[in-house]
Design a protein around this nucleic acid. Structure first.
Length: 414
RNA sequence: GUGAGCGUAGCUCAACUGGUCAGAGCACCGGACUGUGGAUCCGGAGGUUGGGGGUUCGAGACCCCUCGCUCACCCCA
């Protein structure tokens, strides 16, 4: 038996309903704020991610699905959405147009990770990017959009973490200070963190070992070393969030894994998710467009993990489907059924029949199992009278109707 | 990439320390009930116990290898 590849999974019809729900509500919400959908390829030149996502990010170092195609080009399945959108923005000179540079996307991403709860090799992100807005008001708006979206989906008990990780002016000097401080305590840190002192000192704050946590608590925090511009940006962001009445927690240890972030970074977390507690993450990336030889254009965005979002969805109660099941008795009735199916579908009525030539009891039982809301009964009497029996499966009552009345009755209830 | 736990019917799980152990419930199909569903009763189908090798008179169980799943680490959505 051939099974699906490790870290990938099939999404079967009952679960697909949830996907359709979150996709629909996400689209509606983003469009409400003036965002437009953008669809970029799921594979790109490897270089795009090396330059964009960043050569020192874990994603690029060890998590990319990279292969050489038949033309000898190095191709990578996208591990995240932002670089592709930035590439499209530059390639099509979208920044020259007057339309707002507000985009959202929904689609699969790929990372060669070891699968666990909330983490898959093919997963899906619902992402959003804005370009050309310097003002922290847009940072706040972006956070507010997600907050609104989650509320619309009925998801609660989410904590919002924000931080500022500075810009290319203030971060490098801070990292030096942090490195010096961390070196002093190097021997007390765990082996992983000892390595991080040189490779990525900010990541020491991510360590879950108690000893490292305690030590890191006393290390200097970037938030205390921001330049005036970053400090003011962060302070304004907090004010706007307060204005929206959005609760958040400033988490000075929040670092994020992508190299391109500047100033604002944020994460929405839920305790229900397990070890991978982030349902979405995002931040500002003021230098990214420039990195790809585009104009000097600031950007900010986030990506929601669709699988994680779905796992937070409240349990929905099961409803009868708006489905009509046609039960027929005999060959003549079968022919009539075929024509009525066609007729009703043209009128946008969802209907099915199963062609097993079974008795009525059996067909009703099948309709019940399929969760159909109505059953139309066609037998000899009905053929003769040209009136069919429509049974409401919830109420158990039935009416005699001709074709026209039937359409009227069914569309009324839809 | 590292570590731990687990793989028995479509699903959830039984089978004492290796000795009729290949089972139950749910789901599925059929019948009781030939034009009226959900209930009940009866019956049926469905498994080389993830795969391979070994130990043994005998392995679902023990050992080795392998694949997969789950969770955690690393890191992230």
């Amino acid at each position: 038996m051939i099974s699906s590849i490790k870290g990938t999974k099939d999404i079967l019809p009952p679960e697909v309903k949830k996907w359709q729900l979150i996709e629909k509500i996400a689209r509606e919400t983003f469009e409400l704020y003036g965002y437009k959908e953008i669809r970029t390829p799921i594979f790109e030149a490897t270089e795009l991610f090396e330059k964009g996502t960043g050569e020192t990010s874990e994603i690029v170092i060890k998590e990319m699905y990279t292969f050489i195609d038949k033309g000898g080009r190095s191709i990578t399945l996208r591990p995240e959405g932002t670089p592709g959108v930035v590439r499209a923005l530059i390639e099509h000179r979208l920044y020259l147009k007057s339309t707002p540079l507000r985009f959202y996307y929904i689609g699969p991403m790929f990372r060669y990770d070891k699968p666990q709860k909330g983490r898959y090799r093919q997963f899906h992100q619902i992402g959003l990017e804005v370009f050309g807005e310097e003002d922290p008001a847009i940072d706040a708006e972006v956070i507010e959009i997600v907050d609104f979206l989650l509320k619309r989906l009925g998801i609660s008990q989410i904590e919002i973490l924000i931080n500022s990780i500075g810009c290319k002016k203030c971060r490098p000097p801070y990292l030096e200070i942090l490195k010096v401080e961390a070196e002093k305590h190097k021997k007390e840190l765990c082996p992983d963190c000892q390595r991080k002192v040189y490779t990525n000192p900010l990541r020491i704050f991510d360590c879950k070992k108690e000893k490292c946590i305690n030590l890191a608590d006393n290390f200097p925090k970037i938030i205390d070393y921001l330049c005036n511009e970053c400090k003011e940006h962060f302070s304004k962001l907090k004010n706007y969030l307060n204005l929206y009445g959005i609760e958040y927690r400033v988490e000075p240890k929040l670092a994020r894994g992508l190299d391109y972030y500047t100033k604002t970074v944020f994460e929405f977390i839920s305790k229900k998710l397990g070890a991978q507690d982030a349902v979405l993450g995002g931040g500002r990336y003021d230098d990214l467009v420039k990195i790809f030889d585009g104009p000097s254009l600031p950007g900010i965005g986030f990506a929601i993990g669709a699988e994680r979002l779905i796992s937070l969805l409240p349990e929905e109660f099961e409803e009868k489907e708006d489905l009509l099941y046609i039960a027929y008795l005999g060959d003549e009735a079968k022919k009539e059924t075929l024509s009525i199916l066609r007729f009703l579908r043209k009128k946008n009525i969802k209907c099915i029949a199963e062609f097993k030539d079974k008795n009525l009891k059996n067909q009703l039982s099948r309709a019940n199992k399929l969760n159909a809301k109505w059953v139309l009964i066609i037998g000899e009497d009905e053929l003769r009278e040209k009136k069919y029996k429509l049974k409401d499966m919830e109420k158990g009552i039935q009416k005699e109707l001709n074709k026209e009345e039937l359409v009227e009755e069914l569309t009324k209830k839809l």
